[in-house]
């Protein structure tokens, strides 16, 4: 296999596999937050920013995969 082709496959695999976990995790965070808001709509102002922070932290593993992908592609 050529090096160039292997690079593209590696980049695709890295971000594709790396996005699975955070995708599930963010879905769980969003569903729980929406559930909580549904039970107690007055608390939405408190829940929403916390949900965003939690999601941003959950997302970070996907971001690591993305950084690796970008390094493979462009560096």
């Amino acid at each position: 296999m050529e090096v160039e082709a292997a690079k593209y496959i590696a980049a695709g695999l890295a971000i594709g596999l790396g996005a699975i976990g955070p995708g599930i995790g963010e879905g769980i965070a969003a569903s729980k937050a929406l559930e909580a808001i549904g039970r107690n709509p007055e608390a939405s102002g408190k829940i929403t920013p916390l949900m965003f922070v939690a999601m941003a932290i959950t997302e970070s593993t996907a971001i690591y995969a993305l950084v690796v992908t970008l390094i493979i592609l462009f560096a």
Binding site: A56, I57, E59, S60, I63, Y64, L66, V67, L70
Partner: peptide, 10 residues
């Protein structure tokens, strides 16, 4: 550092 850098660069 990767979190901030990765998000903005991405």
């Amino acid at each position: 550092s990767f979190r901030l850098f990765g998000n903005i660069f991405a």
